[in-house]
């Protein structure tokens, strides 16, 4: 759901640009205070994995495809603020080097996929994880449900930007974007749970690297 230039108005681009810069500044400060030796390679691997996985569009209903976003995975493994940095790095490289996502729309894409999706998934995950008494089931259930909501809410944020930009009326943008991403979100949930299960089975110590 990378917005190209032309879909959003200048005020929307400027506002989301300010939101993106502010969130990245806070993320740098929080990460700077808390990050340790062990988080360094994880940040590299997650950025690389999320970029590569985002290239793999999978077909969903009606001639549409979706792709993994990765915000929930990053938020669960490294905490929300570090996830903001990882997701923003991916979006900046996609925009500047691969012309995926418009330059003026970069702030909006960061807002949707590096901020909204990260925090929505992180707090849903955390709530469910605590509700299940920090069990293995709770971790995976929270991850799956959080991942699904991360995609749906990022899509709704995107739709909202289209609406206030005057690109598409709300009665079309909101249900159309929400609806298709409720299906794509299932893919996001499955991939997130699969990756976390694999980490849990092989190196469960890597699940304790959250920077919060």
């Amino acid at each position: 759901m990378h917005l190209p230039d032309g879909f959003i108005s200048v005020p929307v681009a400027a506002t989301t640009g300010v939101i993106a810069v502010t969130a990245i500044a806070v993320a740098v400060r929080v990460t700077n205070k808390k990050i340790g030796e062990k988080q360094v390679p994880m940040m590299g691997v997650l950025a690389a994995f999320i970029f590569a996985a985002q290239m793999l569009n999978f077909p969903v209903a009606g001639g549409t495809s979706g792709h993994f976003v990765g915000a929930a995975l990053a938020a669960i493994l490294l905490g929300p603020w570090t996830a903001v940095l990882i997701m923003s790095s991916v979006l900046v490289v996609q925009c500047v080097i691969f012309q995926d996502g418009g330059l003026l729309a970069l702030g909006a894409n960061i807002t949707n996929m590096a901020i909204v999706s990260v925090f929505i998934s992180y707090y849903i995950y955390k709530g469910i994880y605590l509700m299940f008494g920090k069990s293995r089931t709770g971790l995976l259930a929270g991850a799956g449900i959080g991942a699904w909501f991360s995609v749906v809410f990022a899509a709704l944020a995107c739709a909202f930007e289209l609406v206030i930009s005057g690109t598409s009326p709300w009665e079309i943008a909101i249900p159309a974007m929400g609806g298709i991403h409720m299906i794509i979100g299932v893919g996001e949930a499955l991939i997130t749970v699969a990756v976390l299960s694999l980490v849990m089975a092989t190196r469960s110590d890597l699940l304790k690297l959250q920077v919060t």
């Binding site: 549409t64 979706g66 080097i97 079309i172």
Partner: peptide, 30 residues
């Protein structure tokens, strides 16, 4: 990878605002 349009592209095509998409003023690896 599937070459079908993604969720946003599909919505843009179905609801006739796809043509509003601007192209980048430069290209590194489009």
């Amino acid at each position: 990878a599937s070459s079908f349009p993604d969720g946003l592209e599909k919505v843009a095509q179905d609801h006739e605002f796809a043509e509003k998409a601007g192209t980048s003023p430069f290209s590194v690896m489009s």
